[in-house]
Design a protein around this nucleic acid. Structure first.
Length: 473
RNA sequence: GGAGGAGUGGCCGAGCGGUCUAAGGCAGCGGUUUUGAAAACCGCCGUACCGGCAACGGUACCAGGGGUUCGAAUCCCUUCUCCUCCGCCA
């Protein structure tokens, strides 16, 4: 076996004679390596734990290759298969040596004076053989692990094959965009004239894409978040306010790393990262756990600030608050049994929750299924909810609903005990409930009046201290 | 940040250099007994990887990592986590 390939709790990667273990298990963690810091990778990520089971990959190479191509990833599957083969060869050899070593250790105390020196000599030789093999295995294992973390999950059959946004397929539209009998303003104008935001202050001390919600602007954000929270609690979800500063393993475990490292803010001094969504801590809440089948599904509603570097988005969506570095989000996360039918049902339940919130906010939207080129490494299916934004004269993404299969559970070492006592991996799903300030764009733009005021949807009024209209200053 | 203490299987807890694939207990599963249940008794009762159609075999795992040794749960170093006290602090 490869000492590295063990997963769960009791099994550690103590290569070999025990102690002089290989370092391969750490191979993945390299981000902080330079600083000589220990990485804290999900042990599962080390073995079968990446995304698909290596055995599955071996037997379904063509399907995996197709997924790599359709998701537009760069990964040579043959490199992985070669590393896997090499890794198993060395492992076999190493285990034979170790078996002999164990045998000798048992013989030595029983051996007579005459035989003893001979046996000790052989044991020394065997140990030195082992010590030679270990670094070789460590190297291969490192290569193997790194590649494993880049293997995508397989898109479900209904996911359209395509390259980009334009290949997403619209499923339905709900609500009708208003026709204005005046020239509608965009959210930037509205927020400015309504005094909901301070643009200039933050940019002096916090940089580009920063902003400060002020007065009713700040209250409005809280009102919307609170409306979303209440809606989800009513629908049976457990509210969680999780840590947003997390270890690398959480980012790796949820699939945001290694491919998305450049999107996350890092805190090198403490080897921590700021999450881009509470999905990361919510899923990680159960890392290394074995869940009881009866406890599933687990429905969480996370509320947290979210941080995204938006690297590579220079010059994109720079006007207003569409794309910012820090925002607030209520996110839904579900753990469900490893059953496609149940996952399907829950996926639409989450989508339904998001739609219910949009309905309360009285915002027209459409739902689209994202094509293979637009879904992430781990997602097997993703729906986007796009809200109508008059200022853009377009539907733009405000929500994203994903099924991940067992991708995150494997990486995060989250398991479930089935009826027959066997262990499996639960499926995870997630969906935005509401994200602010982006949601303010359709909210304000759709509900504006000719005089520059904005009429608030009824559902928000109680959360706005009774205020039902925002007036220009 | 400083000073102490602790980390063993689902849980409690023994072990402190070789027979540990870890005593004992609890919980769980199967059985005997019983009208039924309880009790008692008997047995089973970790995970992962590699090889194998399978039966099965091998390896690894006593918080993580490194070291000493022919051999480590046991010795040394180190990291992490938890607890107690002190300091600082929203």
């Amino acid at each position: 076996m490869s000492p590295l390939s063990c997963g769960p709790r009791r099994c550690r990667s103590r290569a070999s004679t025990g102690r002089r273990a290989l370092r391969a298990s750490r191979a993945l963690g390299g981000l902080w390596r330079g600083a000589g810091c220990p990485t804290d990778l999900p042990r599962s990520a080390i073995s079968g734990g990446a995304m698909l089971d290596i055995q599955f990959i071996r037997h379904n190479a063509d399907r995996v290759r197709a997924a790599i191509k359709n998701k537009r990833l760069e990964l040579e599957l043959d490199d992985l298969l070669a590393a896997d083969k090499e890794r198993r060869e060395i492992t076999t050899l190493l285990e034979q040596k170790r078996a002999r070593k164990n045998e000798l250790s048992a013989l030595i105390p029983k051996a007579g004076k005459d035989d003893r020196p001979r046996l000790v000599d052989e044991a020394k030789q065997t140990r030195s053989d082992i010590e030679q093999l270990e670094p070789r295995l460590a190297e291969v294992q490192r290569r193997f692990n790194d590649l494993m973390l880049r293997v995508p999950s397989l898109p479900r059959p209904e996911v359209p094959i395509g390259k980009g946004e334009d290949d997403n397929v619209e499923i339905r539209r709900v609500g009708t965009p208003r026709t204005f009998d005046f020239t509608p303003r965009d959210h930037v104008d509205l927020m400015t004239s309504l005094g909901l935001i301070d643009w200039d202050g933050p940019r002096k001390f916090a940089g580009g894409r920063s902003y400060a919600l002020v007065g009713d602007g700040a209250l409005l954000e809280m009102a919307i978040l609170r409306l979303a929270v209440d809606t989800l609690i009513d629908r049976g979800m457990m509210l969680v306010s999780p840590p947003v500063l997390v270890k690398e393993r959480a980012m790796m475990g949820t699939g945001y790393f290694p491919l998305g490292v450049e999107q996350a803010y890092a805190v090198p001094a403490d080897e921590l990262f700021l999450v881009g969504t509470s999905e990361v801590p919510l899923v990680s809440l159960h890392c290394d756990d074995t869940l009881e089948l009866a406890a599933l599904p687990i429905r969480y509603a996370g509320i947290s600030p979210c941080f995204r570097r938006e690297a590579g988005a220079h010059g994109k969506d720079t006007r207003g608050i569409y794309r910012v570095h820090q925002f607030m989000k209520v996110e839904q996360v579900v753990f469900c049994p490893p059953d496609e039918a149940v996952a399907e049902k829950l996926h639409y339940e989450l989508l339904g929750n998001a739609e219910a919130i949009l309905a309360k906010l009285e915002i027209p939207y459409r739902v689209a299924i994202a094509c293979t080129g637009e879904i992430g490494l781990g997602q097997t299916r993703k729906h986007e909810v796009e809200s109508w934004m008059p200022g853009r004269s377009a539907y733009s993404e405000t929500h994203s609903c994903s099924t991940l299969g067992d991708f995150q559970a494997r990486r995060s070492n989250i398991r479930v005990r089935l009826e027959d006592g066997t262990l499996s991996y639960p499926y995870t799903l997630n969906n935005t409930a509401v994200a602010s300030p982006r949601i303010l764009i359709p909210l304000l733009e759709n509900h504006q009046n000719a005089d520059g005021s904005v009429t608030l949807p009824e559902a928000l009024v109680p959360y706005m201290r009774g205020k039902d209209k925002l007036l220009p200053r």
